[in-house]
Amino acid sequence: MKSPAITAFGEILYDVYPDGKRLGGAPFNFIYHVWKLSGKGILISSVGDDENGKEILNFLKSAGFNTDYIYIDKEHPTGTVNVELDANGIPRFTISPECSYDFLRLEANAKKLLEDETDLLYFGTLAQRSSASRNTLEEIFKIGSLKFFCDLNLRHDFFSKPLVEKSLEVSDVIKLNEEELLKVKSMFGYKGTEKDVIELLSREFDIDLICVTKGAEGALIFDGKDFDNYKSSPRKVVDTVGAGDAFSAILCIGYLKRIDIGKINRIANDFAADICGIEGAIPAGDQLYNKYRNKITEQ
């Protein structure tokens, strides 16, 4: 089966740690993994006309990643997030306001890419905190040929019930964590167990695949008929930044390739666990990608 053509929309930024900065942003982390694993992956985003922006574009070009849809914003800075890790490697984020990714427009080449060369669009909630990027995304939602994958990152106060409702309405695949599922349950007044809420979401919003990640306890996937629960064997945790994005990459590829949810869950959990064993969200070399590329192509 040919590799699916996946495009991500949203932030690329620097995660700033006490000892330095690392490239990040959930849509970027996700699509970088997709690109390394499948050979295809495009990001629609923006960087500032500043030193951080130049560094990011130079790195991506040297890696061979397509930067044609990462635009230079001359008015707003490249995004940054201050990251503090607790004793267990769990991050706390402080997100800078009014960054370049808050002002994304649908340029003509990006619209053509989405209409003619994309099977699925990934999006999250952070890039929707601003009306400019949110309006652009709503324009993209009208493209009838696309499937949509939403990573429902309900962080800080960068979301509202209407935003969540719209994201659920358009999406074919949803990924969220246990805490976010509880927020959605409360937001919509749902009753019952975790599985009850997942089934309600699946029916009410006609969602093909719902995944709830549980950190070290693994993940639960529902495909409209069956549930699959899987937990990886323990590994040494360096930091958990980007683990969910790694999981999303496998989940998305597996969904488009129609891989059994049990297999998707195993591979995605194992990949996310291995990402927790490195510093930052992106592996320095291709060894890890080679291991998982083979796993998702073995049918």
Score class of each variant (00 low, 15 high):
121 L>A: 06
1 M>C: 08
295 K>N: 06
34 V>C: 06
279 E>R: 15
213 T>Q: 01
18 P>S: 14
214 K>M: 14
285 G>V: 02
265 N>C: 15
258 R>C: 05
208 D>Y: 12
26 A>L: 01
128 Q>I: 04
149 F>A: 15
184 V>T: 08
246 A>M: 04
224 G>E: 10
116 D>E: 15
108 A>F: 00
226 D>Y: 15
36 K>A: 02
233 S>D: 15
66 N>R: 09
176 L>K: 03
211 C>V: 14
206 D>V: 03
160 S>W: 14
11 E>C: 13
242 G>D: 07
131 S>F: 01
124 G>W: 13
11 E>L: 09
194 E>N: 09
16 V>R: 12
131 S>Q: 08
72 I>C: 09
170 V>G: 03
245 D>S: 11
223 D>P: 02
173 V>F: 09
60 L>R: 14
216 A>I: 11
52 N>P: 04
130 S>G: 07
171 S>W: 12
21 K>N: 05
71 Y>L: 09
230 Y>K: 04
234 P>W: 05
118 T>L: 14
218 G>M: 00
120 L>R: 03
154 L>A: 00
89 G>W: 04
232 S>F: 10
240 T>P: 08
185 K>F: 11
130 S>L: 03
112 K>I: 02
93 F>A: 01
153 N>H: 03
72 I>W: 10
18 P>H: 13
181 L>E: 02
295 K>V: 00
229 N>K: 04
274 D>A: 13
174 I>N: 12
210 I>F: 11
234 P>N: 09
112 K>Y: 10
101 Y>K: 08
195 K>W: 01
6 I>G: 02
160 S>T: 13
132 A>C: 15
279 E>D: 13
282 I>C: 13
246 A>N: 10
273 A>F: 11
117 E>I: 03
45 S>P: 15
297 T>H: 15
188 F>Q: 10
196 D>P: 07
22 R>L: 15
135 N>M: 15
77 P>K: 11
187 M>F: 10
10 G>K: 09
168 L>W: 06
111 K>C: 03
53 G>F: 04
66 N>G: 08
152 L>D: 01
248 S>F: 04
252 C>E: 05
163 L>S: 03
137 L>R: 07
104 L>Q: 06
287 Q>I: 09
177 N>E: 07
48 G>P: 05
278 I>L: 14
259 I>S: 14
271 F>Q: 07
226 D>I: 03
223 D>Y: 12
124 G>M: 14
199 E>N: 06
261 I>G: 06
94 T>E: 11
276 C>N: 03
122 Y>S: 05
46 S>G: 08
135 N>S: 15
225 K>D: 07
124 G>D: 06
288 L>Q: 07
258 R>E: 10
147 K>D: 02
205 F>C: 06
165 E>L: 10
